[in-house]
Design a protein around this nucleic acid. Structure first.
Lengths: 147, 147
DNA sequence: CCGTAACAGGCAGGCATCCTGACTGTCAAG
DNA sequence: CTTGACAGTCAGGATGCCTGCCTGTTACGG
C-alpha cells in the first residue's frame, strides 16, 4: 500500500496512510463504545468546540470549513443528541452550540481512545520515537510548516 | 488549528493537519512546474502505476478504490495527456495503462518536489528527527499498524 | 470441443460532503 | 434611525466516491 516507483514513498502519502489506519481503528473502538453513528466529519465540532459552548462561526473559522458545512454537521449532531443549540443571551443573532452530556461523554471517550492508541503505538514501535514524532508534528503544524 | 479541549491534539489529527499543509505546498509547486491540472485524486494512478504499465484492476486494488473510481481518474488523465490506454496483447479483456512521456515527466517532477520538501523540513526541524519520523511511518504503515 | 464460472472493464445512478450565492434578522456606529 | 457588518440558514451545484448491473473475454470441467 504505497509505491510511486516501488522505491520511495513521499512523506505526505505516509501521513495519509497512517491517518487512515488510525481513524479506521478509532472508529471501530468508538463504535464498540456505543457511538457508532459519529462520523469523521463530526470532528470539526468535537475538536474545536469550547467548554462553555461555541458559535457556529467560531467552529467554522477554527475548522476551516464554511458556516454552511459546519451548520449541517451541527444539525446532524443535534439530531443524534450530541449537541444542543440555544440562543445566545448576549447576541440575538447568534446561537450557542454546546455538547450535551452524551456529547461530552463521547468526546471524553474519543480522547481516551486516542490516548490509548498512542500509548499502544509507543509500546509497539518505541515510546521514544513516537514521542519524537508527536513533538515534531506539533511543531510543524503549529507554524504553517510549509516550505 | 487543532484543539479538542484546548490541551491535547490526537496524533491522527496532527497527521491530517501536516498532510494538508504538505499537499497544499506540493500542489503549488506542481502548478509552477506546469502541471496545475493534476489533482490529489490522480495520485492513485501516479503512485501505484508500474513502469511497464498497469491494469485498471491492479491500480484499484493497490489504491483501495473501486475500479469505477480509478477508471474515472484514468479517463481524466488520458484526456490531459498523462496516460494512455492500450489493449493488453496478452489478455483481450484487459487494457494496459501507461504513463506518456508527459506523465512520466510529471511523476518525476512530483518526486523531486516531495524529496525537496522533505529535505527542507529536515533543515528547518532537524534532519535526524525527520528521519526518525519517516522510518517510524514506514514501519507503521507497512504492517497495518492498528492496535 | 462446449457450457459455465470468473474476471476486466465500463455505464448508470445514487449519495455524502463540501462549496458559492442569496437571503433574513440582529447589532452597532454615525 | 439609517446604514453597514455580522450570525445563521436556505437553495442549488460540483465533486468524488460508491453500489448495481451489463458486455465481452478467458479459463476450466465435462
Amino acid at each position: 500500500m504505497t509505491n510511486l516507483t516501488q522505491t520511495w514513498t513521499p512523506l505526505p502519502a505516509l501521513l495519509d496512510d497512517l491517518s487512515a489506519i488510525a481513524f479506521r481503528e478509532f472508529r471501530e473502538r468508538l463504535d464498540e463504545a456505543g457511538h457508532g453513528t459519529i462520523r469523521a466529519g463530526h470532528g470539526c465540532v468535537f475538536r474545536f468546540i469550547h467548554e462553555g459552548g461555541s458559535r457556529l462561526t467560531d467552529l467554522a473559522d477554527s475548522s476551516g470549513f464554511t458556516k454552511q458545512a459546519v451548520g449541517e454537521v451541527v444539525a446532524d449532531l443535534e439530531g443524534l443528541g450530541y449537541v444542543e443549540r440555544a440562543p445566545d443571551p448576549a447576541d440575538g443573532r447568534a446561537k450557542v452550540i454546546k455538547l450535551t452530556d452524551l456529547g461530552a461523554e463521547a468526546q471524553a471517550t474519543a480522547l481516551v481512545i486516542f490516548q490509548d492508541l498512542e500509548r499502544s503505538w509507543g509500546e509497539r514501535f518505541g515510546a521514544e520515537r513516537v514521542a519524537v514524532m508527536r513533538e515534531l508534528l506539533e511543531e510543524m503544524t503549529a507554524g504553517e510548516a510549509a516550505g
